[in-house]
Write a protein that binds this DNA or RNA. Structure first.
Lengths: 257, 257
DNA sequence: CAGTTATAAGTTATATGACAACTTAAATAA
DNA sequence: TTATTTAAGTTGTCATATAACTTATAACTG
C-alpha cells in the first residue's frame, strides 16, 4: 500500500520525536559499553553472536543488526569464520556535527571561527604548492561569481567551489575533506540573509566579497604564503563579522528577546 | 571452539587485506547511491524492504543489515509500520579519518598541517577568552610534563590534555571537538619514536617542548592573541619538522626504499 | 619423522518462513 | 457526520536451516 505515498513529508516534527529504545538499541548499547568499559581492547575478540543471544535473551537477528550498526560506526569488525573483534580504530570516533547545532546561529559563528583557522593556513599551503591548473580553476570560479545575472544558488555554488579548489591546491587531502565537511554545514544559514530582506546580497556586498577573493587568488598566484594567509584571514574575518552583526540584529529584533 | 582464543592479534596485516564485497556491502552501496544521486530527497520515502529484496535479488536479512548500517550512519531512518525514509540529516556526513590513513606517516604529516592551522587560531581565541581556571589547568598539565620521572604514556596524556584545556579556553566547542578528534589520531605515531631508539625522547627534546609550551601559556596569560598565535604556530611547526625529519630518515633507511 | 591432506568443529553470511507491533486507509456502525 | 472497526501494508523480532570461511587436529604419505 505504501501509505506515505507522495505526501511523505506531511509532518516534520514527528520524525524528531523520541522512540522507545528497540531491542537492537539495547544490544548495541550493551556491546558498546562492554568495549568502552575496557573489558575488550582494540584487536581482541568479542563474544560470538550465539553468546550474545544467550546473554541478552534476544534473537540472532537483533544481535546481527546491532553488530551491523557498530561495524558501520567502525567500532567492531566481523570476520567470517573467525568471530567478532574490536576494531583497531575503535577509539577513532567521527567528528560529527548535528543538525540542531547548525541551525543555531551562534553555532554557525563558532563553526566560522573554526573555518577561519583552517582557511588561512590552507591558503598559505596552496600558495606554496598550487599548480597552474589550480590557478585556472580558481579564476574560472571567480569569473562565474563576477557575472552580473548570476542567481543566488549558483553564486553559493561557485563560492564553495572556489574554496574547494584552494583546498585541493594545498595538496593536503584533509583540508579538502574538512572544508567539504564544514562547507555543507555553512550553507543553511544563507537563508537567513534572505529573511533579512536581501540587505546583504546587494551589489556592494558582492563587490566586497569579490575584492577579498581576488586578494587571495593574487597571493596564491604570486606564491606568497604570508600574503595568502593575510588575505584569507581577512576574508573569513569579514564573513565572521557579517554573521556577528546579523546575530546582534536578530537578537535585538526577535520577539523572544 | 573460539579459535582466536587469547592469540587474537596473531596477524595484524590480515585484518587489512581487502575483503571481497559482501551482499550487504552491495546493497548498502545501491541504497546509498540512490540517495546521493538525488532520486530521493531528505524526508522522502524509500522503497520498502520487500522491494529492495526483489530489485537486488537478496534476502530480507541482507536488506535489513544494509539498512541498519545506513541508519547507523544517519543516512536513513526506519519507522515501524510506515517505511524507510531518507534522514533529514542525510547530507550531514561525518568527518572521518580511517585507520589506514593514519598509519601512513605522510598522512600524519598532513594531519599535523591541518592541526597546525587549528591550534594557532585556537590559541589566539583562548588568549582572548580564557578564564583564571583555564590558566590554572594549563599550569597543572605543564607541571606534570616537567616532572623528571614521568613515563611516556603519562607524558603523552598530559601533553594532549594541555591542548585540550586550550581548546576549552577558546570557548568554542568545535575546537574542542576537533582537537579531541585529531588528538587520538596523532597518538599512534609516537611508537615510531620508540622504534628509533628513543633518540627524540631525551632530555633535550623535553626541554624544547617545554619551552614551546611555556611560550604559549605566557601569551595566553598575557591575553595576547597575536603572541599566542605565533607561539602555537612555532610549536606545531617544530612538531611538523620533527615528523618530516623522521620521514626522511625512514625513507632513506627503509629496506623498501 | 616431516610435510601434506582430510576431517571436524566453530563461526559468520545468507536464505526463508512466520508472527508481532505499528500505521494508515477504507469500510462499517452509531 | 462521527466514531469504530477492519484490513492491508510495513517494520520488528524470532526460529531454523544451509553455505562459506577459518582453524585445530587427526590421518595420511613420503
Amino acid at each position: 500500500m505504501r501509505q506515505g505515498g507522495t505526501d511523505a513529508v506531511h509532518d516534520e516534527r514527528l520524525a524528531l520525536r523520541k522512540r522507545r529504545p528497540s531491542l537492537v538499541d539495547a544490544a548495541c548499547e550493551h556491546i558498546r559499553a562492554s568495549i568502552l568499559s575496557g573489558a575488550h581492547w582494540p584487536g581482541s575478540q568479542l563474544p560470538t553472536e550465539a553468546e550474545f543471544v544467550d546473554v541478552l535473551g534476544v534473537s540472532r537477528t537483533v544481535v546481527r543488526e546491532a553488530v551491523a550498526r557498530l561495524a558501520a560506526a567502525g567500532l567492531v569488525e566481523a570476520r567470517q569464520g573467525k568471530g567478532l573483534f574490536v576494531s583497531e580504530t575503535a577509539r577513532y570516533q567521527a567528528f560529527q556535527i548535528t543538525r540542531e547545532e547548525v541551525e543555531n546561529l551562534s553555532d554557525v559563528i563558532q563553526l566560522l571561527e573554526l573555518r577561519l583557522s583552517v582557511e588561512t593556513e590552507m591558503a598559505a599551503l596552496a600558495a606554496e604548492r598550487r599548480s597552474e591548473v589550480d590557478v585556472m580553476s580558481m579564476r574560472q570560479q571567480l569569473k562565474i561569481l563576477g557575472e552580473a545575472a548570476i542567481g543566488l544558488d549558483d553564486s553559493v555554488k561557485a563560492d564553495v567551489e572556489f574554496h574547494n579548489v584552494i583546498a585541493r591546491a594545498s595538496k593536503n587531502s584533509y583540508y579538502a575533506k574538512l572544508i567539504d565537511f564544514l562547507g555543507v554545514r555553512l550553507v543553511p544559514p544563507r537563508s537567513l540573509y534572505l529573511r533579512q530582506g536581501q540587505s546583504y546580497v546587494g551589489a556592494r556586498y558582492k563587490a566586497v566579497i569579490s575584492e577579498e577573493h581576488e586578494a587571495i587568488l593574487d597571493a596564491i598566484i604570486r606564491r606568497d604564503p604570508d600574503a595568502a594567509r593575510v588575505a584569507a584571514r581577512s576574508h573569513m574575518s569579514s564573513s565572521l563579522k557579517r554573521h556577528r552583526d546579523l546575530q546582534d540584529f536578530m537578537s535585538s529584533h526577535s520577539p523572544t528577546g
